[in-house]
Amino acid sequence: MSEQSPCLNCGACCATFRVSFYWGETDSAPGGDVPTQLTEQISPYRACMQGTNQPKPRCVALLGTVGEGTRCSIYEKRSSPCRDFPYHGENGVDSPGCQQARAAHGLPPLPDSPLRPRLVPIIAA
């Protein structure tokens, strides 16, 4: 995450969605990194971050206040859904999930990335 990342002032995704992943990502499996004590089992092969399998989710690893200043307490050991979830406009890509999470917490949408290709209307003569 760069210094310019809006994630450092947001954290909405961590307090909106269930963060579920293959149990082998936990440190109880060879090569796993996610701290097992911060997860709960949701099926024989799936785990999720504690706090995210609730009607009002909030990941146990999220520190700070959503929309003001946040960080992940296990950032270097976070699960694949967290690693793969882009903020809106990251690398020029739309992220409807990011915008949905921001809206759920009353945060304004992020602007489109300047890297995003723009459609130019074709005007017929």
Rank of each mutant, 00 (worst) to 15 (best):
Cys14Glu: 02
Gly69Ala: 13
Leu115Gln: 06
Leu119Ile: 12
Arg102Asp: 08
His105Ser: 05
Ile42Asn: 07
Gln100Val: 01
Gly106Ala: 04
Cys10Asp: 13
Thr52Arg: 14
Val66Leu: 13
Asn9Phe: 10
Val120Trp: 09
Glu40Cys: 05
Ser2Met: 15
Trp23Asp: 12
Ile42Leu: 11
Pro121Ser: 07
Ser113Asn: 06
Asn9Cys: 12
Ala103Val: 01
Ala12Lys: 01
Gly11Asn: 02
Cys59His: 00
Ala29Thr: 07
Val93Ile: 11
Arg116Met: 12
Cys59Met: 02
Asp94Asn: 15
Lys77Asp: 03
Arg58Asp: 07
Glu90Ala: 12
Gly11Phe: 01
Arg58Met: 07
Leu8Pro: 10
Ser20Asp: 11
Thr70Met: 09
Cys14His: 04
Gln100Arg: 11
Leu38Asp: 11
Pro109Phe: 01
Ser20Pro: 00
Ser2Phe: 10
Gly11Ala: 02
Tyr45Gly: 02
Ser80Tyr: 08
Leu115Arg: 03
Cys14Val: 02
Gly89Pro: 02
Leu110Asn: 13
Ala124Val: 08
Pro86Cys: 08
Ala104Pro: 06
Tyr22Arg: 15
Pro86His: 11
Arg46Lys: 15
Cys10Lys: 07
Ser20Ala: 04
Met49Thr: 06
Asp84Lys: 15
Cys10Gly: 08
Arg18Leu: 07
Leu119Trp: 12
Gly92Thr: 05
Phe85Ser: 12
Val60Ala: 14
Arg83Gln: 09
Ser95Trp: 03
Gln37Pro: 07
Leu119Phe: 10
Ile74Lys: 10
Asp112Lys: 15
Tyr45Thr: 05
Gln99Tyr: 00
Leu107Ser: 03
Thr36Leu: 15
Arg46His: 13
Asp84Val: 05
Ala29Val: 06
Cys59Gln: 00
Ser113Tyr: 02
Ile42Ser: 09
Gln100Tyr: 03
Leu62Arg: 09
Pro81Gly: 07
Gln41Ala: 10
Gln50Lys: 15
Glu25Lys: 09
Asp112Gly: 07
Ala103Gly: 03
Asp33Tyr: 11
Met49Ser: 04
Phe85Leu: 14
Arg46Glu: 14
Arg71Ala: 10
Cys10Pro: 09
Asn53Ser: 09
Asp33Thr: 14
Arg58Phe: 05
Cys98Glu: 01
Pro35Asn: 01
Tyr45Gln: 02
Cys7Thr: 00
Cys7Trp: 01
Ala125Glu: 14
Ser79Asp: 05
Tyr87Met: 07
Gly89Thr: 02
Ala47Leu: 06
Leu62Phe: 07
Lys56Phe: 09
Gln41Ser: 12
Met1Ser: 10
Pro44Gly: 04
Pro55Ala: 10
Ser95Asp: 04
Pro6Ala: 01
Asp84Gly: 12
Ala125Phe: 13
Met1Leu: 09
Pro86Val: 10
Pro35Arg: 01
Lys56Leu: 12
Asp84Tyr: 09
Pro121Ala: 07
Gly89Trp: 03
Asp112Ala: 13
Gln37Cys: 04
Cys48Gly: 11
Asp27Asn: 10
Pro55Asn: 06
Arg83Asp: 00
Thr36Trp: 15
Pro114Ala: 03
Ser79Glu: 03
Thr36Tyr: 14
Val34Ser: 06
Ser79Ile: 02
Gln50Pro: 01
Thr26Tyr: 11
Asn91Gly: 04
Ala29Glu: 11
Ala103Met: 02
